[in-house]
Write a protein that binds this DNA or RNA. Structure first.
Lengths: 128, 128, 128, 128
DNA sequence: GTGGTCTAGACCACT
DNA sequence: GTGGTCTAGACCACG
């Protein structure tokens, strides 16, 4: 797994790990059943505190993104969301709202915002 | 100013204030030149410590959303962004990417995501 | 007197008044004996609170820059500094140090800083 | 870090901290990557409230002088200014003008002012 | 251990 | 009245 951290972004490292694992799944780099590096491996590779990795993995497990099998490692789970439809909708709407407010405040029009989102989705689908 | 705080969301109060003031601006509820509640007023209305309000206002001032005048109060500033085009684009793209990854991971299609964003923008424009 | 205020600089208005009166003297726009606007006049012209003007004038009087004659108005005084040589030297050195630290931190060389100062002095002498 | 505060100068403590950290950088006492005392350490050493130190560090971070890492501490950042050339020039010119007006008003000649600045720069370079 | 947020309450500077 | 600074002391999040 090729992770990159931005230590000055203010976003916690464990959150950056979570986000990037999710990205690797939606972009097709990781598929359900794939084994991902163990806590220890990743910690030493990325020179990050193991407890930080641990926290990320625990959260990802809780969200149903990965599952941990004792003695074997961590694996990407089936893409069955643990969230209900309304919950999912609420999560996305909240993030969409934050994006919209920020972008509108920076002076972007509705069209420009949608264009931005469309572009980003395509980038992700191409694995960028 | 009609603010609502979610004390259990984990999002700092001062951040919630910032977000909501920005929202009030983009939704047209507040216009440049408008005076907003003073630190003490808002603090007593919202039953929040004045220094917390102060922090929010200071940050908003730094971002150019409002300006503070000692002895007079706080005012919405001209909507001239302090950021360069590339920086603005970077900010929006980053948020758009976070939204896209999260939504795709929850199983939404590109169309559904765009639909969500479009809906939210319209809500904001209608002042909801 | 043609004063310009920067309300968003953080520098108190009364200080800006003091600085600009001093500037008008060193640049030759005002000479000793010249009458300057009364507190009331200036307050109404500049749309500033009279107490603010009052504070500026009081301070300028204390520093010996102007003197107030009851019923007649305020006048620029003789350019006899009330400060001792060591005091004067300390004041200038302190400001010079602040300038130097800031400029060096921004990456300017000694030559560039001196060039900046030289340029500014000439501007002032030309009354700009 | 050897800081000295003047509690009766009217200059906020957090500002004095900022100025002195900047001084330590330009004078070579601190280099990029160096770890500086933690908020608590400095607070207890200088017998100042941690939140005051925090404010100074937050401002220095915003100016790009240092960066803060939760759980690790504060470090001097690369000396890459966040300001554009014109902005840097404006900042220095403003400070130079303030210095020049004040010094000229105290009766110093252009040569004397430049001499003062030159002397101060050399002092800083020698680490005084 | 680190930084980050918040409260309660005081005092100062400015308009 | 306004914003701005500081203290003392608490609690949380992160590595």
């Amino acid at each position: 797994m090729n992770l990159v951290f931005d230590f000055s972004s203010g976003i916690p490292i464990y959150r950056q790990i979570m986000d990037q694992v999710k990205y690797l799944v939606v972009s097709g780099h990781l598929k359900s059943g794939d084994r991902i590096e163990s806590v220890r491996e990743l910690a030493s590779n990325m020179k990050v505190n193991p407890t930080t990795i641990m926290k990320a993995y625990t959260e990802l497990t809780r969200e149903g993104v990965i599952f941990q099998r004792r003695g074997q490692g961590c694996f990407i789970s089936e893409s069955v969301s643990k969230f209900s439809e309304t919950e999912k909708s609420r999560i996305v709407e909240e993030k969409a709202r934050a994006l919209a407010v920020e972008a509108m405040h920076l002076g972007y029009s509705a069209e420009e915002i949608l264009e931005h989102v469309k572009k980003v989705i395509n980038k992700i689908k191409r694995g960028e």
